[in-house]
Computed example of a mutant assay.
Amino acid sequence: MQDVFIRGTSAVLPNAPVSNDDMESVLGQIGDRPARERRIVLSRNGIRQRYYAVDPATRQPTHTNARLTAEAVKGLVGADFSLPDLDVLACGTSSPDQMAPGHGVMVHGELPEAASCEAVSLAGICCSGVAALRYAALTVSAGQASTAVATGSETASTFMRSEQFTAQYEAQLSAMERRPELAFDGVFLRWMLSDGAGALLLGRQPAEHGLSFRLDWIELRSYAHEQAACMYAGARKQAEGGLQGWRELPADAWSASGAMTFQQDVRQLNEHIVALTIERALPEVLARRPLAADAIDWFLPHYSSEYFRPRIQQGLRRIGFEIPEDRWFTNLPEVGNVGSASIYLMLDALQRETSLAPGQRVLCFVPESGRFSAAYMLLTVVEGA
């Protein structure tokens, strides 16, 4: 197996940034009064602005997920790379524009300058972006490709506009009054998620100029055999914890049941996310990939809310892997939680906003609450070729 290097990074954020005060005017108001839960969620998540692929005047989409992702891929074009060089395109997302064809070929379809290539789609939630990166890296490492591009992207706003919630709100209004937690689970993510796309260029050598990342390893862990679904879309959660898929519901119940929006079991998230993705997963990874905390120069944790930051540090402390917070890097306050794209956006920002040096090690952490998974990735900064 050959070494694999991240030779370039690219990030695309649609339209102008949207402040906390402007969110509801862009996404639309549900019901006859502003959302009471918005300030509760925003007071904890630490996000100051985010980006939506939505026209603030018409509240209509401005980008498809495929087009936004293609813009990120085009952002990699330079002296070392042109689109006809592309051998493999691996695309991860939790919000594709359609069920079929796959997201990967739809992105390829937005790149007419490219030649024929292998295009694959990685489904899931936050970890789908890392899974796409792992697929692309393995093809290069195995000698099956010279140049690969991995992407992570989201257009979560398509799930969050008020039009998606009106029927659900009206159908469940009386139930919400009896059990307010139903309302919170249904709209919690509306104030958490945002849009964007990132792309990474992979090859067998570092970039000719500047710094690159050597991809030392990627590890993914799933605990779905122990946990019910926690974050989901296209389904309705049953009382016993199972999911009833949208195809099992009458067509006229899709909107009213909330099956076509993202939902989150907030209590399950709070109870298990750190215990499983830090205290359980990281020791399992370290048993396979020995690593000391003091060898980490930069820690890039993807978390959905600043609420989880101290809890992540507590979890690291409990397993004896505490990383001082002056080595942490996040851009959550500036770009929001962009799901599968978040780690791509962080790596791009890390290169642009910090003074990286050859030999530094970067540990990336991506938890996913879909049914509780975790991804860890170790990179080493290297000089240009």
Rank of each mutant, 00 (worst) to 15 (best):
L182Q: 14
S116W: 05
Y135P: 04
G384P: 15
A171E: 15
T158F: 06
L89P: 02
Q314A: 15
V4W: 04
T380H: 03
L111N: 12
A11L: 09
V18I: 11
S194Y: 06
G75Y: 15
V149D: 07
G75P: 15
L269R: 00
V88Y: 02
H225L: 03
L378E: 00
A375S: 03
L173E: 05
N65M: 09
Q313I: 13
Q144I: 09
F165P: 05
G210P: 15
E383P: 08
W217D: 06
D252S: 10
T158E: 04
M160S: 06
T93K: 10
A90V: 05
P96F: 06
A171S: 13
V266L: 04
A259D: 08
I40Q: 12
Y376Q: 02
Y232W: 14
F81E: 14
P250T: 08
E226I: 10
A259I: 04
N45C: 01
W298F: 07
I6Q: 06
V149Y: 08
L89E: 04
L83P: 15
K74V: 11
A90C: 03
L13W: 01
C117R: 15
Q238V: 07
D252Q: 15
S305Y: 00
Y303S: 04
L89K: 10
S121L: 06
L379H: 03
M231P: 03
V105A: 14
M106V: 08
A253E: 14
E284P: 13
L200C: 10
S222W: 07
V73S: 12
F372T: 09
E24Y: 00
T166E: 12
A11V: 12
E240P: 01
E71I: 15
T261P: 07
V381Q: 04
K237M: 07
T151R: 10
G75S: 14
R327F: 02
G336D: 00
E240H: 06
A275M: 02
S153N: 01
L202S: 09
D85L: 04
S340A: 09
E306Q: 13
T93D: 09
A287K: 00
S369V: 13
V140H: 13
E271N: 13
M377H: 01
I343H: 02
M377K: 02
R236K: 14
G78Q: 12
H108F: 14
D55I: 02
G370W: 00
C91L: 11
I319M: 07
F5S: 01
N337C: 05
G320H: 13
L83N: 14
L89F: 03
L76G: 09
P367T: 10
